[in-house]
């Protein structure tokens, strides 16, 4: 019997991520890892792309991981877990190791997933390895000091898309990676956020039991990069969901399903105004950028509603 997805039951299990790691106070990444790993009762083996999570959890000679874990490089978490999973299948088939219901999981940030690791992820998904790739998307290269990635929201001030006198922040809308992964036709693709922990956990279970490659894109607040107080992590994450900047949905065997529809779809500026990275957008001369971002959020939301049969 799988552990009931109630916090009280889950809290009885040992944390698979130990304390003593050196992620920043209030980091969204470790919240996501803890919630997702708590939802899985089976043994797990993890590959981690270079990034905050990898760096901060395994500063030699310490490791925060109580499960088998491998870091190889930045762009190859998906191909690394491919190798681990292929080894498992080979060794089990030959009777060299016992068969267990091992869940293979790769974690990568948006830099390691949307950008430098996209090819490896696409390849691994196409090959059909049984693994779950989790992108913890905090919308920039936070580990190296908040540089823009293709996941960075339009208008955001990062150290390589600075809000300057002529160019006010990032000039492109973010890549829709979740849809790109859905286009691979793999059994399970979902978008989630830790503020809605039960949805995240249920998706995690579906993903690791989908029988094939699965991808989850999980919004991860970075208070250093987003510029908000450390204790507002959960609230601001939920605002991204309630403004429909970050809709919660899943694509299961090609069927799109909306998992959460805000009672009242909030204007995106409710999310923007809580974060220092968007502060410059509230100057009168940049107001049009908020409108443009709102229009893009609306366009994507309508498209999603249509795909999910909700329109």
């Amino acid at each position: 019997m799988a552990t009931k997805l109630t916090p009280r039951e889950l809290a009885k299990k040992e944390d698979r991520l130990a304390p003593g790691h050196r992620l920043c106070a209030g980091c969204g990444a470790s919240i996501i890892v803890r919630q997702m790993l708590a939802a899985i009762d089976e043994p797990v083996v993890i590959a981690n792309a270079t990034g905050c999570l990898e760096v901060a959890t395994t500063i030699y000679p310490y490791t925060a991981w109580r499960v088998p874990w491998i870091h190889n490089a930045f762009e190859n978490a998906a191909s690394t877990i491919s190798g681990v999973e292929a080894a498992y299948r080979s060794l089990v088939r030959q009777g060299k190791i016992p068969e267990q219901d091992v869940k293979f999981i790769a974690f990568g940030g948006d830099g390691g997933t949307y950008d430098i690791g996209l090819q490896a992820l696409s390849g691994a998904a196409e090959r059909g390895h049984q693994f779950l790739y989790v992108c913890y998307d905090n919308g920039a290269y936070m580990n190296t000091g908040i540089q823009r990635s293709s996941a960075t929201p339009y208008g955001a001030n990062t150290t390589t898309s600075p809000a300057g006198k002529v160019i006010p922040g990032k000039r492109q809308f973010r890549k829709d990676l979740t849809a790109i992964m859905a286009a691979h036709g793999i059994p399970y693709v979902a978008q989630a956020a830790p503020s809605q922990w039960k949805d995240l956990m249920e998706k995690t279970r579906k993903a690791v039991n989908s029988g094939g490659p699965a991808f989850m894109n999980v919004l991860s607040s970075c208070n250093r990069g987003w510029r908000h107080p450390t204790d507002e992590t959960v609230e601001i994450t939920q605002l991204a969901v309630d403004t429909c900047f970050w809709p919660l949905y899943e694509v299961e065997n090609g069927v799109w399903k909306l998992n959460y529809k805000p009672k009242e779809k909030l204007p995106v500026e409710e999310w923007l105004k809580r974060q220092g990275r968007f502060r410059h957008l509230f100057k009168p001369e940049n107001r049009h950028m908020i409108d443009e971002l709102q229009a893009e959020v609306d366009r994507r939301w309508e498209r999603l509603l249509h795909l999910c049969g909700e329109a």
């Binding site: 083996v45 590959a47 998906a78 491919s82 190798g83 060794l91 190791i97 691994a124």
Partner: peptide, 15 residues
Amino acid sequence: HSAMSACVGASAAGA
């Protein structure tokens, strides 16, 4: 790049 990456993963796995 993925060939060698997968080799590292598989070798670490014990293959």
